[in-house]
Measured scan of single mutants.
Amino acid sequence: MSRVPSPPPPAEMSSGPVAESWCYTQIKVVKFSYMWTINNFSFCREEMGEVIKSSTFSSGANDKLKWCLRVNPKGLDEESKDYLSLYLLLVSCPKSEVRAKFKFSILNAKGEETKAMESQRAYRFVQGKDWGFKKFIRRDFLLDEANGLLPDDKLTLFCEVSVVQDSVNISGQNTMNMVKVPECRLADELGGLWENSRFTDCCLCVAGQEFQAHKAILAARSPVFSAMFEHEMEESKKNRVEINDVEPEVFKEMMCFIYTGKAPNLDKMADDLLAAADKYALERLKVMCEDALCSNLSVENAAEILILADLHSADQLKTQAVDFINYHASDVLETSGWKSMVVSHPHLVAEAYRSLASAQCPFLGPPRKRLKQS
């Protein structure tokens, strides 16, 4: 649940008159999402009104509101027999009622949201009550392989729920002597030191190019640089560091992050930047690179990204790559990247197969709970 924001200063709310007192009302909304995959969808019983329910879910471990999704594969009634019906059901509720908006969509073979439908307002739910769409999607369109909505005969539904909580009022009075504290510009100011090479005390040599930097900042941000300058190493004695395995453009992006906490060109060089972040123990930059690479996972590059993640101990990226390969196994196994990995990294192939087997055979063990970014 997000923290209630402070109200904007009255002088910034309007260029008009300023009242002596004010009130700011925040209506709290808890948002969460749920993904439900139905394997072997074409084998569902086709009687009209037949119901399939998901397991229950909530916004978190401490949330007492429990929900589930309900599907009628062949419609709810005679009117909707040519459609799939989809509903959000409130299973248990400690209150007399709650209000919530919802959005349903289908994830296609690429994991993209399609055929989205959402409620136009927050509906009133009581325990045992459901709301949804009797005519969510035509069955003939859903079952047509050309539309790519049932890869490997799996129907994957994605649901986003927004639950309306209580409202909170914050009130106060205006004073004539309003003090406005300026925003912190530390990142910009440190970035200026790097860009202008002011007050530098060490030189970093990268592929024949020299960059002036500040030992204190490098040591504070990177345990690797800290070790170089702290001990009686040649880098500490000469205040000069030779860097041979990072390209200059990648190095500059890494230094921008060290000084400012930002990497504006990360998406263009996420793979190389991940390697640099791993070498210099820049954990936050490493996770930022993992996130960017996750966003660009595809059938063509899944094997290469899995190898990269394994090489640099990028655990979150590795998990996402394995899950992606499992979901698109029939396509990924035909790529040149996968065939190369079979020869060069057989242990990763074995890991992917083990994960695929456990996903398809849940009876082999208890269900695993899916539970950071600093």
Rank of each mutant, 00 (worst) to 15 (best):
L364T: 14
E247V: 04
R138W: 01
Q127H: 10
L266F: 06
F102W: 14
F199L: 15
F225R: 00
Q165G: 08
A281H: 06
C202N: 09
F257N: 13
P9W: 09
V322D: 12
L266T: 04
V71Y: 10
D130C: 07
L142Y: 03
C23N: 06
M233H: 15
K95A: 11
F324K: 01
P367W: 03
W22N: 00
P5T: 08
E97C: 14
Q120D: 13
F324S: 01
E247G: 02
K372C: 13
G75F: 08
I217L: 02
C93V: 05
V30C: 10
A116R: 09
E113A: 04
K28W: 05
E183P: 08
S119P: 02
C44R: 10
G208F: 12
D188E: 10
P94S: 07
Q360C: 13
C68F: 03
V342T: 08
N40H: 05
P73I: 12
Q316I: 03
S15G: 06
V91T: 13
S298G: 09
C205M: 13
A19F: 13
E113S: 06
E253K: 03
F102S: 01
K31H: 11
S330C: 01
A275V: 07
K74G: 08
L65D: 12
W22P: 00
D166F: 03
D315W: 15
D291A: 13
K286Q: 01
V161Y: 06
K103F: 11
K101I: 02
S171H: 06
L155R: 00
C184G: 01
V349G: 06
S313M: 13
D291Y: 04
M48R: 02
Q26F: 13
L149C: 04
K318C: 14
V51G: 05
S119L: 03
V322K: 11
A276Y: 02
A309Q: 00
Q320P: 10
C68T: 15
P182Y: 06
L157Y: 08
F211A: 12
F141G: 05
L69E: 07
A321S: 06
N108K: 15
P94I: 10
F57G: 01
M178F: 05
T319L: 10
L274R: 00
K103I: 13
A352C: 12
Y353H: 11
D140Q: 12
F133H: 11
D63M: 06
S344E: 05
L371A: 13
S226Y: 15
T335A: 05
G128F: 14
W22I: 02
T56S: 04
C361A: 12
R3L: 03
E12V: 05
D63G: 02
A357H: 07
N174R: 07
K252S: 09
M269S: 03
H328T: 03
S222N: 14
V246M: 04
